[in-house]
């Protein structure tokens, strides 16, 4: 270490020694203590209001947690979520591709689709499809010269479950279309230009170049949508699909144990969402992008557990 001496007085070693004798006393932050105490007291009273009040019947809730009809309701909710998500992704992809197509007709149709299905409350869409029988008595396929080859009464196939699937798939597809379109838009245009320079047809460019790359931007928000959809399916209760919420309602309609059963429902939703967040966490890690939603306690817990850290000031 070549330190060149200047005319300035160099440190006498004693100064540093003198300094090293000093003990740093950290500041006591009374504000933080008061804040902590206040929050704890407040949380205590809130929790106590819930825990001690007999109306909340935690034991009753615990008793119903694995009740067979609750279980089958949960199953319905999960099946609905999976089926609707699957259909919504397919329809959403088609609509998204239409939205970026060169044809103005297709583009406006897709735009109207997204506007309509995202603009109308899901509850109304559900009720509408459920009441379809009032509007259209039967569906029939009639060919000229051949006559009617196929006819079915609306009431026969528009079961509550089926109308729920139709209504929510169409609705969710509106949201998925926007996500997929954003994904397509975020693939640099140079990619498709390069592909057309190679003589690839439009269809192939979309299928083989653009969509695969868009996946990276599509998957993380799709995880969020799946969680939103899970919660959205609770609305099917109002068209008498026996999902989780409906099952709970039909129990408390008999026993009047309203609050305990609502607790059961909330607990199951929280549990399923937490499990889905775990999956989403790994998807996000895999695709290397984080979404605004994240940062729930679950993901924070996961971050700590798996040692992946949010970007921070690590200077």
């Amino acid at each position: 270490m070549s330190k060149v001496d200047t005319s300035k007085a160099r440190p006498q070693p004693s100064v540093v020694e003198e300094v090293d004798r000093l003990v740093v006393v950290p500041r006591r932050n009374y504000g933080i203590w008061i804040g902590t105490a206040f929050t704890l007291v407040l949380s205590y009273f809130i929790l106590r209001a819930f825990a001690v009040n007999p109306a909340f019947g935690w034991e009753t809730a615990a008793g119903y947690l694995f009740h067979p009809s609750i279980m089958s309701g949960l199953m319905t909710t999960l099946v609905l979520t999976v089926v609707i998500m699957f259909l919504a992704i397919i329809i959403g992809t088609i609509v998204a591709v239409m939205r970026v197509s060169p044809s103005p007709v297709l583009r406006s149709f897709a735009g109207a689709y997204v506007w309509f299905f995202r603009g109308v409350p899901a509850l109304i869409q559900l009720i509408f499809w459920f009441n379809l029988a009032l509007l259209v008595r039967e569906f029939s396929l009639t060919l000229p010269f051949v006559g009617e080859i196929f006819s079915i009464r609306t009431n026969d196939f528009m079961t509550p479950f089926f109308s729920a699937v139709v209504a929510l798939s169409l609705c969710e597809a509106g949201y998925m279309a926007e996500i997929i379109r954003a994904g397509i838009k975020s693939v640099p245009t140079g990619q498709s230009e390069a592909a057309s320079a190679l003589g690839m047809p439009y269809r192939n460019i979309l299928k083989r170049i653009v969509l695969p790359q868009a996946m990276r931007f599509v998957v993380p928000p799709t995880g969020n949508e799946a969680i939103n959809l899970l919660k959205l399916t609770s609305l099917v209760t109002f068209i008498a699909v026996d999902d989780l919420f409906y099952s709970a309602q039909s129990i408390y309609a008999r026993t009047f144990e309203t609050i305990p059963l609502l607790i059961v429902v909330a607990v199951w939703y929280l549990a399923v969402v937490s499990i889905m967040s775990v999956g989403q966490h790994f998807l996000e890690r895999h695709f290397g992008r984080s979404e605004t939603r994240s940062q729930s306690l679950t993901t924070r817990f996961l971050r700590n557990a798996f040692g992946t850290r949010a970007k921070g000031a690590a200077t």
């Binding site: 000093l22 003990v23 740093v24 006393v25 950290p26 500041r27």
Partner: peptide, 12 residues
């Protein structure tokens, strides 16, 4: 800090 004797108190 505030220095008192051999202790450095972090200031408010």
């Amino acid at each position: 800090y505030d220095l008192r004797k051999d202790r450095l108190y972090e200031v408010k």
